[in-house]
Nucleic acid binder design. Structure first.
Lengths: 145, 145
DNA sequence: TATTTTAACTTGCATTTCACAAGTAAGATG
DNA sequence: CATCTTACTTGTGAAATGCAAGTTAAAATA
């Protein structure tokens, strides 16, 4: 895995800024959540996710996530209409970020999904291992590289 | 600490969605970074931060962060013009989120500040403890409550 | 094989947010 | 009291967002 690429002009070299420029919007992390925790893999599934993303925004975010090497796309061999989206290793590595964001909100806001939160809180490492195991072998080679 | 408030209408009850609605933009987390890691406390300092936020956006973000109870504001007793912004306990609790975002970007992108990254990577817990210690006692009572 | 469905988009348009520049009010400074 | 600072607000154009409708290629159906 060639870890680092020069990248386009960023506002700054700060790693947090890099994360924010890739993920700092109202939809990207929710799409990654849907893939990581709910196993969503197709456009239609994302589109019908609870929060209700607009079709043009979804297409744009999928494009950008793929351009950043966070997700990968391939055609479904069984159905030529479908594209199958999956997390790359880079995308899977976002599991700790999602976990901390979930735990933070659960600690300070009135939120739902107590089962997930309980599981994450009870044993963070075990939860992260489960995500990685579920995705082991599955990621497709990223096209953007 | 009254942990949870009913909160306004959200797109969904998912804790990740709650986090994204509060922090999912291109500036909020950078402001928190400036407070947490660089010790910035005034409008002017934020304004002159490296990435160069616009004044109206900064005012808007500070307002929203305060409304969410993430930061608190009080007047500088020594200079009546100045407002002193500080992290609330809720804001300090974002340290693990920032840490994971920094480590993720540092692992997968070409970024700067290797000293910070090294420190975070070497001992995450020690780093988080240092942030908490630095802010111990300092947070001001949140006005938004 | 012709027709209808389905999946994954694109396009158009109104609304909201953002970025940049300039202006303002209250408090400090000389 | 004139000037400077600090923390903003306001105005304006550009960009992003949200919603509805349309498009294309492949698959399912009649």
């Amino acid at each position: 895995m060639r870890k680092k690429k020069p990248g386009p002009q960023r506002r700054s070299g700060c790693p947090l800024n890099a994360s924010v420029e890739m993920l700092g919007d109202r939809w990207s992390l929710l799409i990654i959540r849907d893939m990581m925790l709910l196993g969503f893999r197709t456009y239609k599934e994302f589109l019908h996710s609870y929060e209700g993303i607009a079709t043009n925004i979804l297409a744009d975010r999928l494009r950008k996530l793929e351009a950043h090497g966070i997700i990968a796309t391939k055609r479904d061999p069984a159905d030529g209409r479908k594209l199958i989206y999956s997390l790359t290793p880079k995308g899977i590595d976002l599991a700790p970020v999602l976990t901390e964001m979930v735990l933070w909100a659960a600690a300070h806001e009135d939120t739902g999904n107590p089962a997930l939160v309980r599981q994450m809180k009870k044993n963070k490492e075990r939860f992260l291992a489960a995500v990685r195991r579920r995705w082991a072998g599955k990621p497709i080679r990223a096209t953007a590289d």
